[in-house]
């Protein structure tokens, strides 16, 4: 006779997982914070190097829209996982991952245009800051896309149930973090 093990998560474990993820998010915010301080200092020290709208505002605006839409799909995935709907969870995770890929594709187009114009990290300190900040953010997006693809596959396989869905929940928190970081990068780098 074949037995299927149903994984059940205790309330205590769920709290520990959430708390651990929030600690990770805190450390990530503290990782990005000095970049913003560095950027403000650089802007003040070298005002001639950067001016508003010198980067591609259109692509960055579309990317903002893509990230906001993706967070809607992500919250749908979390809600679907809580109700034990594996297919809906998987589909929403795949939509979110697709949005992440679209973001990275547009970012690549933007980088390509800048590199063709000879604007490299070594050009000046503004472009050093720009490539460092957006590069680290892009890396976070890429990690999120890979994790979501794996979770979507697991959700379709039926790994997540009403009683076990913390991986989807913490992935949702991570994706919101990525969105929040972009909310600061977009105006600071592209608009002002």
């Amino acid at each position: 006779m074949e037995h299927t093990a149903v994984r059940v998560e205790t309330e205590e474990r769920l709290e520990h997982v959430s708390f651990g993820m929030w600690l990770f998010i805190s450390s990530e915010i503290m990782f990005f914070t000095p970049f913003f301080a560095m950027y403000i200092i650089m802007r003040n020290a070298h005002p001639e190097l950067s001016h508003p709208h010198q980067l591609n505002v259109l692509i960055a605006s579309v990317n903002t829209f893509i990230l906001v839409i993706s967070s809607l799909f992500m919250t749908n995935a979390v809600n679907a996982s809580k109700s034990g709907d594996g297919v809906k969870t998987s589909n929403n995770l795949l939509f979110t991952a697709f949005c992440g890929l679209a973001f990275l594709a547009l970012k690549t187009v933007e980088y390509t245009g800048e590199i063709k114009e000879g604007l490299l990290p070594s050009t000046n300190i503004f472009y050093s800051c720009y490539y460092t900040m957006t590069g680290f953010h892009g890396l976070h997006i890429l990690i999120g896309v890979v994790v979501m693809a794996v979770l979507a596959w697991r959700a379709r396989r039926g790994d997540f149930t009403k009683t076990y869905n913390s991986p989807i929940e913490v992935c949702g928190l991570y994706w919101c973090l990525v969105e929040v970081v972009w909310f600061f990068l977009f105006p600071v780098l592209y608009l002002v």
Binding site: S18, L23, S26, I29, M30
Partner: peptide, 16 residues
């Protein structure tokens, strides 16, 4: 959790 979430933002506000 709220305090854990708020803490890095307070640091962000102080630093920036």
């Amino acid at each position: 959790l709220r305090t854990t979430a708020l803490f890095p933002f307070v640091l962000f506000c102080i630093m920036n």
